[in-house]
């Protein structure tokens, strides 16, 4: 991959009819989203704007509703109120697979890999939506389907290379170490060349070395493949280092948003983390 693929600093965007800069640049706009199960309020009136190309982190204490928010963004949950738009299109009522088609990929807190399949098959499944040959062509295999497999195989090898997975290419993923599985899951999400990738605690349970490797992978993917990242993570050190902007959730409410520097000095954030009364 050559240097020209690295993004240049963002150019000033041409003025659009609206004056609100955050909406104009937003890839994902979460507007007044609330979510409740039965009488249980999980999210209340959350607003977020994630700009194209940034690494945006969501932090907050356990039970703050971080994962639920991701679930709303990629369609597992339908918000009780509010609106989520992606690329300026309302997506709060779209299905998971519809959103996958639009370029939203995702990893999970507790791994959701295809355990009995090999690394390469897991990654190929990431490109599932791009495989279009018919059933009959697949039954005959030679010709169209084989070519398609070859092309995707080549594309997936790029991800293998990027995430340094060559050593476990043909291994059954269920038998690999936890850290490697996390990396494969990230790779599977990347393999679809998504516009947006949602990472739910991609470094949980990793050693310090694995964590720094993983954040390097995330950064590389973000810059090289131009994918916008929304990230949930508990390791504040890594978050501060990796993120462009951070939102803080506490008990379903967004209590702060801003650059890592702003967040680290925000009083309400400190209060939420230290448990001071507010």
């Amino acid at each position: 991959m050559n240097a020209s693929e690295f993004p240049t600093p963002p150019l000033p965007t041409p003025p659009l009819p609206t004056n609100d800069a955050s909406i104009r640049q937003a890839l994902v706009a979460v507007q007044g989203v609330s979510l409740s199960f039965g009488g249980n309020t999980v999210l209340s009136n959350v607003d977020l704007n994630v700009r194209s190309g940034e690494i945006y982190s969501i932090i907050g204490p356990n039970g703050a509703g971080k994962t639920s928010l991701l679930n709303c963004i990629n369609g597992f949950y339908k918000p009780t109120a509010g609106r989520i738009s992606f690329d300026d299109k309302d997506m709060s009522r779209l299905s998971v697979s519809r959103l996958a088609r639009m370029g939203v990929a995702r990893t999970f807190q507790n791994l959701a890999l295809f355990r009995d399949l090999s690394t390469i098959d897991n990654l190929l499944l990431g490109r599932n939506l791009m495989m279009k040959t018919s059933f009959a062509q697949a039954a005959w295999y030679w010709g169209a389907t084989r070519n398609e497999e070859l092309n995707h195989r080549a594309a997936v090898e790029e991800t293998v290379h990027l995430l340094q997975l060559a050593g476990v290419r043909d291994a059954t993923v269920g038998r690999l170490s936890y850290g490697t599985q996390k990396r494969i899951e990230f790779g599977r999400a990347l393999a679809s060349r998504p516009k947006l990738i949602l990472l739910d605690e991609p470094m949980a349970g990793m050693t310090q070395v694995e964590k720094s490797e993983m954040s390097a992978f995330i950064r590389t993917a973000n810059k090289l493949l131009d994918v916008t990242v929304i990230l949930i993570e508990h390791d504040v050190g890594i978050i501060m280092d990796l993120s462009d902007r951070i939102a803080v959730l506490d008990r379903g409410v967004k209590i702060a948003e801003g650059s890592p520097r702003q967040i680290s000095t925000d009083e309400s954030v400190i209060a939420a983390y230290l448990g001071t009364d507010h």
Binding site: F76, A100, A112, L113, F114, L125, L129
Partner: peptide, 16 residues
């Protein structure tokens, strides 16, 4: 096989 191993993740891959 994806559906066999993890139906939720299969949906996420856009599999109907």
């Amino acid at each position: 096989m994806a559906i066999r191993d993890n139906e939720t993740a299969a949906r996420l891959m856009g599999i109907s």
